[in-house]
């Protein structure tokens, strides 16, 4: 039995040298580096330490943990490490920011925080599916979080839409509960790591189907099937399913930044190689950035670089 104890009840000040938006691997790594540079640092996290990684059952490709490590456990270890070096952490939502002046303002639900520098590490969230039925059945048979909702699909025949690492990792987790799984992929192959694919197809109650364009999700009170069109033959068919988990990529958490900072056409934060944004004193790190690979291992590297550049900025600008 696991007991997760939330140990962040302390009040924080309204003025910091550095504020990090987001307490995932990128943000917490930045907090470790800034803390060690003796810079007064605050991390603002919306939900739980570890961010998206915390909803991953097991991370197997993050170095240092040969047996793998639970995402939530890694998150809370990183949080502890950041706090050991003096960073403050609060749980709140950033509603708006003001980067117009040298002093940056971060607006939360009930307060404003002022800081000399800001590191944006607010990450990304699962991309929602937009086909008929997808919205109606969300939370009623369609889920975007296997860790949260997996136990509710006991003995059901489910479909997973997607074929990347998240889709296959979560499929393997869901096999603990469900009766059968069909992986519905749009491409002619899976894009997940080979080791995950091997592990998945060992299970007899797993099937895969490729080249599917999703047309709709069907059912009356409950989900019955997914209508697809074969991308080659254009043939239409129905795939029966009693529940659906969707892993079709991510979108960045940048709504609160619109109009304040330069974003790319997919709303990821644009940075240079030093992770500086177009605003002086504002840096970005992790999944929220325009980048090629979004993993815990790359987020951690970003956090270190952003913190290093921020430290240099504070020294040169006279802080």
């Amino acid at each position: 039995m696991i007991l997760n104890l939330d140990k962040n009840k302390k009040t924080v000040s309204d003025n910091y040298d550095a504020v990090i938006i987001g307490g995932g691997p990128a943000g917490l790594t930045a907090a470790i580096y800034l803390g060690r540079a003796r810079i007064k640092t605050l991390v603002i996290e919306e939900m739980i330490p570890g961010g998206q990684a915390a909803t991953t059952v097991r991370l197997e490709n993050y170095p240092g943990f040969p047996e793998g490590i639970g995402g939530a456990e890694l998150g809370s270890l990183m949080e502890k490490q950041a706090k050991n070096f003096g960073a403050d952490i609060i749980y709140d939502n950033v509603i708006d920011v003001d980067f117009k002046n040298e002093e940056k303002i971060i607006k939360l639900n009930k307060r404003e925080i002022r800081s000399k520098i800001v590191i944006i590490a607010s990450g990304a969230k699962p991309r929602k599916m937009h086909v008929p039925g997808a919205e109606e059945f969300e939370g009623k048979g369609i889920s975007y979080c296997a860790t949260c909702d997996g136990p509710l699909f006991r003995d059901k025949n489910i479909a997973i839409i997607g074929g990347g690492n998240s889709a296959i990792e979560e499929a393997i987790f869901l096999l603990r509960f469900v009766k059968s799984i069909i992986i519905v992929q749009d491409l002619p192959k899976l894009t997940a790591e080979k080791i995950l694919e091997e592990r998945l197809i060992k299970h007899k109650n797993v099937k895969l189907t490729f080249n599917n364009k999703i047309l709709s999700i069907n059912g009356e009170k409950e989900i019955k099937s997914i209508s697809v069109e074969k991308t080659n033959s254009k043939k239409k068919m129905d795939i029966p399913a009693e529940g659906i988990f969707i892993y079709i990529g991510y979108i960045p958490n940048t709504d609160y930044l619109k109009g304040h900072i330069e974003l790319d056409k997919f709303n990821y934060v644009k940075t240079n190689e030093n992770l500086e944004t177009n605003i002086k004193g504002v840096f970005a790190a992790g999944d929220v950035c325009k980048k090629t690979l979004r993993q815990v291992a790359t987020a951690v590297g970003d956090g270190a670089i952003a913190a290093f550049m921020a430290t240099k900025y504070l020294e040169n600008e006279g802080g």
Binding site: S143, C148, L152, K221
Partner: peptide, 19 residues
């Protein structure tokens, strides 16, 4: 806790949490 009380979770059509 939905997993411990599946009958009532089913009755209220719990397929996503929190519901």
């Amino acid at each position: 806790e939905s997993y411990e009380f599946p009958e009532i979770a089913d009755k209220y059509k719990v397929q996503g949490v929190p519901r």
